[in-house]
Design a protein around this nucleic acid. Structure first.
Lengths: 210, 210
DNA sequence: AATTAAAGGTTAATAAATAAACAGGAGGGT
DNA sequence: ACCCTCCTGTTTATTTATTAACCTTTAATT
């Protein structure tokens, strides 16, 4: 079976959420059109995804939620939660921390870091906020491999350098600058402003078409 | 010339940013490899994008920033800023407001709305925060067509209904629920938690590959 | 004057993502 | 027993996105 690509991984993560809900509600099975509606894609798309994962269903009862859950988890390697850290407890950082608190995610934000002494030493949304000076020690001790940067633009590169030196292998960067890292470090750049601009563009498109 | 698709629009918006910088610095021209590095794609990709926009360059001086700027602006229809509103001035809402303040965007957040009387009546990051009860009047008076939802999950659907009733034609929704809207309303769902989970997944992938 | 290097323009090839189409089996009703 | 409907499994087609390859131009160099 071939590895899932970007869009597929997105959908699988969404399916996983829905399936968890169904399990909590005591359901034993789920249909492709339910998943399709929840995720916002066509049922055909769902079926094809599930085919790739080699999950079988029946026309009568759809797919077994248990089998489904296990299959996705093993493909996404999310049996045990990956520990990540977050740097920069500003508005965006706080927003992310509280999102993770509410949602049972495949990840766990083990700690957050900031340079502002007013923020450090407290717990926010269940996550301890530590001083940025401790981050290197922390990464090494806890063997953290993934970090989220939500600092201001100006500090992003400096923080990235620090993280890489300490052993971080992959970074999710929300600061609106391209950070430069060694080749063997993975970076995912997420630009919220741009996402909104894009949405607005396509909004216009569809308005005109009607 | 055919209309730019999703990924292309993303890149064009990034090019635009870089070109603005170059113009501010007094540069007259820009090369494909510069843009490529800034945006994180191959120079070939850049050239192809520019070809589609019918922007011509020369091997010696690359592309004219002015021509470039005008071409992108006209294709993205961003000559005059589109006014949008934001609902929900929590952590994420504030983060977005401050991002837009710093960055010269193609959009302008004309007003923000919240139900908390402690927040309303003030100005945050240059944007007035009004009471949610005024939103319908505001949308109609200012003919706003695009709205950003950054409320808690629980209120998202209710707010969406309200917005649609008031005349909003397209919504960027950050609340982690699929909102249901009439067919003629455009919705862009942005799930930050999911983006991070996805990034973590591909991080793992690349780690293993090495 | 010829050569080389750097950068753009174009076309073709490949890969990824999405959509469409259709056969087959199990229930349920007549 | 027959037909109808619903939903799955699979295949094929189509559209989007990305990459690679190759040619051309022009300035600098030898």
């Amino acid at each position: 079976m071939r590895k899932p690509k970007h869009k597929t991984v997105e959908r699988l993560l969404k399916y996983l959420e829905y399936v968890k809900k169904k399990m909590n509600d005591g359901n034993m099975s789920v249909f492709s059109h339910e998943l399709a509606k929840y995720v916002g894609v066509s049922p055909a798309q769902v079926r094809q995804d599930l085919m790739d994962l080699e999950i079988k269903g029946t026309p009568q009862s759809g797919y077994s939620v248990e089998e489904f859950f296990n299959a996705i988890c093993s493909h996404l390697k999310c049996e045990r939660k990956t520990k990540v850290i977050l740097i920069g407890v500003g508005n965006l950082g706080k927003a992310i921390l509280s999102y993770f608190l509410k949602r049972k995610s495949t990840l766990e934000i083990a700690a957050a870091f900031d340079s502002d002494a007013q923020k450090t030493g407290r717990i926010f949304s269940g996550t301890p906020i530590l001083n940025i000076e401790e981050v290197e020690k922390y990464i090494k001790r806890e063997r953290i491999k993934v970090a989220i940067i939500t600092t201001p633009q100006e500090s992003a590169q400096r923080i990235a350098d620090l993280l890489v030196r300490a052993g971080i292998r992959s970074i999710v960067n929300f600061a609106p600058v391209m950070i430069q890292v060694p080749e063997n470090v993975f970076v995912e750049q997420i630009d919220i402003t741009l996402s909104i601009e894009k949405a607005a563009y396509f909004a216009d498109e569809t308005l005109e078409a009607k």
